[in-house]
């Protein structure tokens, strides 16, 4: 499941900024699934999320020259782009179908059912991560990672001191790292 690294981070950025379609193809192969997860967490509708994923990658290609590596990693930039597009999409729809918008936790539960029946084979057992990740860790990670909350906003949302949020984020990612390793080497 780990992307086959044929580019280092900087090589990939270089090639993309030179508009190399081979590098773009590599980028799609390695990050489309994760970015779809990000979009789907905000827009839990298969068709809409798929349309958005297409827009996300076209935007990545068009705006790659605007990516500045001194401001963060490429994945972080793509993550922000995907999440913002998805959030804009729900805001556009909010006027019409306010009731249909689900909270992040709802969408993740919905997705759990969805994934277990439809795409189990794609996950190579990684869906266990969802079960093994502590509930409070997952709550925080989902808010920050998928919903784009800052640590301060998450602290308010969860009624939790900022220090605790920071610690739990780190713990959550650490356990994700462990779980990822475990799954890869199993």
């Amino acid at each position: 499941m780990a992307p086959k690294q044929t580019y280092t981070h900087n090589e990939l950025v270089d090639q993309l900024q030179k508009k190399d379609q081979g590098a773009f193809s590599y980028l799609y192969d390695n990050y489309s699934k994760a970015l779809f997860g990000v979009v789907f967490a905000v827009v839990p509708n298969q068709e809409d999320a798929e349309d958005l994923l297409q827009i996300v990658f076209v935007k990545i290609w068009k705006n790659i020259s605007m990516y500045d590596s001194s401001k963060g990693r490429l994945y972080t930039w793509m993550l922000n782009l995907a999440r913002n597009l998805a959030i804009d999409h729900t805001r556009g729809k909010q006027q019409k179908m306010k009731s249909k918008i689900q909270s992040v936790s709802d969408s993740v539960y919905a997705l759990k059912d969805h994934t277990s029946e439809n795409t189990a084979s794609d996950f190579l057992g990684l869906s266990n991560i969802l079960n093994e990740l502590k509930k409070d860790h997952k709550e925080i990670i989902d808010l920050i990672y998928f919903k784009g909350f800052t640590h301060e906003q998450a602290s308010k949302e969860l009624n939790m001191p900022l220090g605790t949020v920071k610690t739990k984020v780190r713990q959550a990612i650490n356990s994700l790292k462990e779980l990822t390793k475990k799954e890869i080497f199993n």
């Binding site: 780990a2 699934k33 789907f40 798929e50 994923l53 994945y75 994934t115 794609d122 991560i129 990822t180």
Partner: peptide, 20 residues
């Protein structure tokens, strides 16, 4: 860390190979 987050998002990603 990035890989862990990528993998986590992938576990929440019901994207079929065919659609992709």
């Amino acid at each position: 860390i990035e890989m862990a987050l990528v993998n986590y998002a992938e576990t929440s990603s019901p994207l079929q190979k065919q659609s992709s």
